[in-house]
Computed example of a mutant assay.
Amino acid sequence: MPSESGSFLKGVILGGVFCLILALLGTFSPEIQFRSDDHHHLHHHLKPLSREELQKLTVAQMSKVTQQVRVYCLIMVTPKILVHWATANETWSKHCDRSAFYSSESAKALEAIDLQEKNEWTRLRKAITHAYDSAGGIRWFFVARPTTFAIIENLKYLVLVKDSSQPFYIGHVQKSGDLEYVEYESGIVLSYEAVRRLVEVFKDESKCPERGHAIWTLSEEKQLATCLRYAGVFAENGEDEKGKELFNKKSVNTLISDSMSQNPSDVVEACCSDMAITFTGMSQSQMQVMMYGVYRLRPYGHNFHDSLTFLPPKDSDND
C-alpha cells in the first residue's frame, strides 16, 4: 500500500506540473523578448538627401556616389506564381545592377537559382547567404517578392550617401510586441555590413535557428528582424522629406482609391510620395502599366531638373 500511495502521489504531482506547463504555453506570446537596454536602438525615420543637400555636392562627388551605389536584387519566387515571376523578370528587375530569382524548386520556363527548399525562412536564409557570397563589389541588397514593383533608381537615391559599411535595415517598419521589423511584402533593403553580420549570426542556432523554434514559428520577416537584432541591426523606416512612406504595402490603384475617398480635394498629394520605391500586391497587368508610366511615358520637352543620373547596368536591356 505505501508504494501504491507513493506512486499515486507522484502521478498527481507530475500531472499538476504538466497542466501548469500547458497553461503557461496557452498564455505565451511567441515574440522574442529583448533586454530593456536595447530600446535606445529603436528605428528612426530614414530620409534621402533634400534638394538643398544634394546641391551642396560637387560634380565629382555626385559622379562618384552614383557609380558606387549598386544594388543586388534577391527576388523570392515559387513555380506557383510563375506569371508574377515572369513579369518581374521582364520589368523592374532589369534596373537592378544584378538580380537573381531564388526558387523553391526548378522551373523549366524561367532561369532561377534552385535552393531546393520548401520552408520559406530557410530559403530566405540560403538566398541571402548566396547573394552575400556572390555580390562582388555590390554593397546594397534588396529583398522582394515578385508581386512587388520596385523603382530601383529611387532606392539608390535613398541610400545615395549612406555608408554601406554601416548596418542598415530599411523598409516599411511594423511593430509586434517590442520587436520592430521591416515588412517583407513592401521590400527589404540591407547594407553590406548588415548582411555580413546576419550571415555570421546565421551560424548561431541558439539566436537564429534555421528551422525556427520548436514550440512556435514566427513569420520569416519577424525571424529576419530577430536575427538582425541579435547582430545589432535595427529596422529603419524609409520616408521622404515630407514624412510620406517610400515602401508602400499597397498597390498604386488601392492607394489612389483610398486617397480619392479620404482626400477628394487633394488626391495626388495625399496619395503617394514622388520618390516612392515600392508598391505591393501588383497584378501582372498593373506591373506592366507601372513600367510604362515610370520609365516610358515622358512629356516632350519637359526638364525634370534631376541633378543625378543612375546609368543602367552594363549590357542591360532595361527601359
Rank of each mutant, 00 (worst) to 15 (best):
M1F: 04
P2L: 09
G11N: 12
G16W: 00
A23L: 10
A23T: 06
T27P: 07
S29K: 08
P30G: 11
E31P: 04
R35Q: 14
L46A: 06
L49H: 15
S50W: 10
L57A: 00
S63L: 05
V65Y: 04
T66C: 06
Y72M: 01
I75Y: 03
P79V: 08
L82R: 10
V83N: 03
T91C: 03
T91D: 04
S93E: 01
R98T: 03
D114N: 10
L115W: 00
L115Y: 00
E117W: 01
T122D: 11
A131F: 12
S134F: 03
G136V: 01
G137V: 11
L155Y: 11
V159C: 12
V161P: 02
I170S: 01
I170V: 14
V173R: 13
D178C: 05
E180N: 06
S186K: 10
R197S: 07
F202Q: 13
F202C: 08
D204W: 10
E205H: 12
H213M: 12
S219N: 11
E221C: 03
K222L: 13
L228K: 00
L228C: 01
D240I: 07
I256P: 12
D258Y: 08
P264T: 01
S265M: 12
C272R: 09
M290E: 09
Y295F: 14
Y295K: 13
L297A: 14
F304Y: 13
T309E: 11
L311H: 14
P313K: 05
